[in-house]
Amino acid sequence: MMADTQTKEATKNMNMIEAINSALDIMLERDQSTVILGEDVGYFGGVFRATAGLQEKHGKTRVFDTPISECGIIGVGVGMSAYGLRPVPEIQFADYIYPGLDQLVSEAARIRYRSAGDYICPMTVRSPFGGGIFGGQTHSQSPESMFTHICGIKTVIPSTPYDAKGLLIASIEDNDPVVFFEPKRIYNGPFSGYYDRPVEPWSKHDGSDVPEEYYRIDLGKANVVREGEALTILAYGTMVHVAKAVVAEVGIDAEIIDLRTLLPLDIDTIEESVKKTGRCMVIHEATRTSGFGAEIAALVQERCFYHLEAPVERVTGFDTPYPHSLEWAYFPGPIRIGMALKKIMEQ
């Protein structure tokens, strides 16, 4: 799975938080225009500790706390970009991003277009997203398809510490605005979706073997995490791990592709795989209607229609707010995926 360009010299076992912290540290060191801002990211190092130690190391004007104003955080990011900085704001939870939406959607996303390149916005908005932590409806949402629907924003979602670091560095170096959603359920360890089984630490997963130095994983490149012939499963973030666990449990020869970047999407890898397997399933935790799975289904039928042996199957969260106590009945876990596998293979 580590097909990306890099030499694996000094590697270290890292969880996803540590890998993100390492990416930020390296970019602060390499590029003096990089700045980190957000609620509690400075002295405290972030509520999930992603920026721990960075203010002390790089100084208060490079890593700093902000007022509780997502509109302000993203808006000043646009302004800092106009000056020539490369801001990396953190929105504490993806559920809190909405007050900043106007600055993101109407400003950051369009500044290059509307000024014909006079101004750009090389900003990377990091934000923990997704559920599985009993966070209720305001600490569990997966709003990624709201951003893929906006022209001018790239959307990136890592599924391992290794990918998180390489993708975050590439996002920060990208000259366009990137929304970088971090699946908080897997910050400390991959999650199989079998919530009643013991939690596995990252140290047992090869994706936690992370180079200490600089490396990039180019945006727009998916990762085939399991090769197979029976069907193609497309997933990202936490759901990559759930898909792998279910496929292993069911014993089906699925090809599992971790999309990693939703936009720009690696359509070539998807097309090649679906044409090979003839079946396609997309899994996401986000609500179903107008979710990213709908876009995938459309693309696959446009490009692979005559290769398909079954309709594209979507496995998703239900179209309700994320519940608190019934979290596991909501989550698209092994049962839902297992039933969908059965259905798509029987056709």
């Binding site: 519940p323 608190h324 106590s325």
Partner: peptide, 16 residues
């Protein structure tokens, strides 16, 4: 407790 007596039907984070 998000329990069976919860008037908000277990939907909300505690204290909401």
């Amino acid at each position: 407790y998000s329990n069976r007596g919860d008037h908000l039907l277990g939907r909300q984070l505690p204290i909401m």
